[in-house]
């Protein structure tokens, strides 16, 4: 029984992460009618962002007390959100903005290209080998800081961060990581829902999603709404990236692809364009994946990804609007 509960907990947590990514994806699709294939890469960028912020030897102060760790976590979350948002907005500005109005397929191909480009840049800048988070640093007693150490974190120099060793200690204990992850997830999910459902900006975004022309006619300018949506989506994906690496370890340039695809699936299942739908879809997917992995025999679990995709196909064929989605599109 407790095994089931643990697995349910794991499933929910995984589902929340998928849900976070899916929310960003759904929001962008709703507002810009654009399947942002590069969304998984914002996830990856967020993870790397948090990685570097944890590596910065700024936490020399403090001797690893709990408060410093708390602040490190907070900063990590903020940095991951910020880096995800930044890259997202950049991609929108540079890649999508003009072509979005012109051609659906070309926009999609540009998205694919952006995704590949980001992955390639990741490969070159960060190197392809996975980096642990945060055990990239050997626990080193506080030493004198060096400027070079700060400028070249990827060189793998031992970091003079006593705090990181604290984080490492936390990370190594599953319950600690789970607690952190759970709390951040809860905040992020709540924040996303609040933003979309209760704020004026969220209302504007929803208006543009439903009908851009009508929104325009009541004075809502779609372009800023789109930029904000991209920023929010990117931020959510970035946070998910940080949490993913915290919980499952491993930060590498291709880490965004599979979760990105799964987020697509979650968004479609839940109804593309619906925020709550994306969350529901993500949860369902996370639960399904975790439970099937836990309970199905070993040989079958290799087909996990295939099952996810099969689920996608089934939904597309039977109920393309997903569970909660609305129909976007012109009448005959």
């Amino acid at each position: 029984m407790s095994y089931l509960l643990t697995q349910l907990g794991n499933g929910l947590m995984l589902g929340c992460m998928y849900g976070l990514i899916a929310v960003g994806f759904s929001l962008v699709y709703g507002v810009a009618r654009l399947m942002n294939f590069a969304h998984g890469e914002f996830f990856m960028v967020g993870a790397y962002g948090a990685l570097f912020s944890a590596e910065l030897p700024l936490w020399r102060w403090g001797n690893g007390a709990g408060a410093t760790m708390f602040w490190t976590l907070v900063i990590s979350v903020l940095v991951s959100a910020a880096s995800g948002a930044l890259v997202s907005v950049l991609v929108e500005r540079l890649a999508y903005r003009r072509i979005r109005r012109v051609s659906r397929t070309a926009t999609f191909l540009v998205a694919v290209g952006a995704s590949i480009l980001l992955q390639q840049i990741g490969f070159k800048v960060f190197s392809a080998s996975p980096r642990g988070f945060p055990d990239v640093c050997t626990p080193v007693v506080v030493a004198a800081p060096t400027l070079s150490g700060w400028l070249q974190p990827s060189a793998g120099l031992p970091c003079e961060v006593a705090v990181t060793s604290q984080l490492q200690a936390v990370a190594l204990s599953p319950s600690g990581t789970s607690a952190v992850t759970f709390v951040v997830l809860a905040f992020a999910v709540w924040g996303a829902l609040f933003f979309v459902l209760r704020t004026d900006t969220g209302l504007a975004i929803r208006a543009v999603s439903i009908d851009e022309k009508s929104a325009r006619s009541v004075g809502i300018r779609p372009q800023p709404a789109i930029v904000i949506t991209f920023a929010v989506g990117g931020a959510l994906a970035g946070i998910a990236g940080f949490l993913w690496s915290l919980r499952y370890g491993g930060v590498q340039p291709l880490m965004g692809f599979i979760p990105g695809v799964k987020a697509f699936v979650a968004a479609v299942i839940g109804g593309v364009g619906s925020v709550t739908g994306a969350l529901v879809g993500g949860l369902l997917l996370g639960l399904l994946e975790t439970l099937s992995f836990a309970y199905l025999p070993g040989e079958v679990s290799g087909y996990r990804d295939a099952v996810t995709l099969l689920l996608l196909l089934v939904f597309l064929l039977i109920r393309p609007l997903g569970l909660l989605g609305r129909q976007f599109g012109e009448a005959a």
Partner: peptide, 21 residues
Amino acid sequence: RLRGDYMALATLAFAEILVAL
């Protein structure tokens, strides 16, 4: 039966399922 974007996803799923199999 499927509109453009959804058709793309369906074909993608088809190919990926094949590859996974």
